[in-house]
């Protein structure tokens, strides 16, 4: 359903990723693995139209997506940026509402769904997002992305700086959305275990190119690869 074809891009004149091709089917959760600096975030920003594209294309259902990031979101990509980037001086509900309104969805419904999907946001509903903890901000960023009613959810390092209990909760919700609503997910992570708890399949990125594609069981049985990925 979602496809990157020969994606090549970077910043100004520097090419960071080269000929990256990957595809994600409906209902599928796919991980994008790689060490620090391998180009995971760049691949995701390419898919979102947030960096300069030098070649290649991004498509959903075979239809190439427009250049504008906002239009890509409306075409069905939900995006959770690295570092979360919640709007600090908007309340929790306003963060969710902004996404819903921007994509022309009902604000009330979106807010209610966010609170029912993520009960931990309930007591914080009307405080400023800046006063949430890192983990809560991460959850909010996911709730916000879901408010755009995406067909595929792209998460960039969702576990960064998040306490384990919340990581578990996040994994649980993603799994549920995938199971119940057929949401496709692409998750870029360094946290191998988090990825493997979700995904059935992974692309391994190294120095800006796809080094290999592997299934969950392949990675689990390959200690060498695991260590390489973690840099431990």
């Amino acid at each position: 359903m979602f496809k990157l074809t020969n994606a090549t891009g970077g910043y100004k004149k520097t090419t960071i990723i080269r000929d990256v091709s990957l595809s994600i089917a409906e209902n599928e959760i796919v991980a994008l693995l790689g060490r620090n600096g391998a180009g995971k975030t760049t691949v995701i920003k390419y898919a979102m139209g947030l960096i300069d594209a030098f070649g290649g294309s991004t498509s959903i259902d075979g239809k190439e997506l427009p250049v504008s990031t906002a239009k890509r979101v409306k075409a069905g990509i939900g995006y959770v940026p690295q570092g979360r980037n919640v709007f600090p001086r908007l309340t929790v509900l306003e963060n969710v509402a902004a996404a819903a309104i921007a994509c022309g969805h009902n604000r009330k419904d979106a807010e209610e769904r966010a609170l029912s999907d993520f009960p931990m946001l309930k007591p914080k509903a009307s405080v400023l997002a800046s006063s949430l903890s890192g983990g809560q901000q991460q959850v909010l960023a996911i709730a916000r992305a879901l408010a755009t009613k995406p067909r595929i959810l792209i998460l960039d390092e969702p576990t960064e700086g998040v306490q384990p209990s919340i990581v578990d909760e996040i994994a649980e919700v993603i799994r549920k959305l995938n199971r119940d609503k057929g949401l496709a997910v692409l998750v870029a992570e360094q946290d191998l275990d988090f990825c493997l708890s979700l995904a059935d399949r992974a692309y391994v990125l190294d120095k800006g190119v796809i080094a290999r594609e592997a299934t969950k069981s392949e990675i689990l049985s390959d200690m060498e690869l695991q260590h390489e990925l973690l840099g431990v």
Partner: peptide
């Protein structure tokens, strides 16, 4: 290892 690698019990459970 748990915190550094993000390793948690649920991994094996899944």
């Amino acid at each position: 290892l748990d915190i550094y690698l993000g390793r948690r019990k649920h991994v094996q459970a899944h």
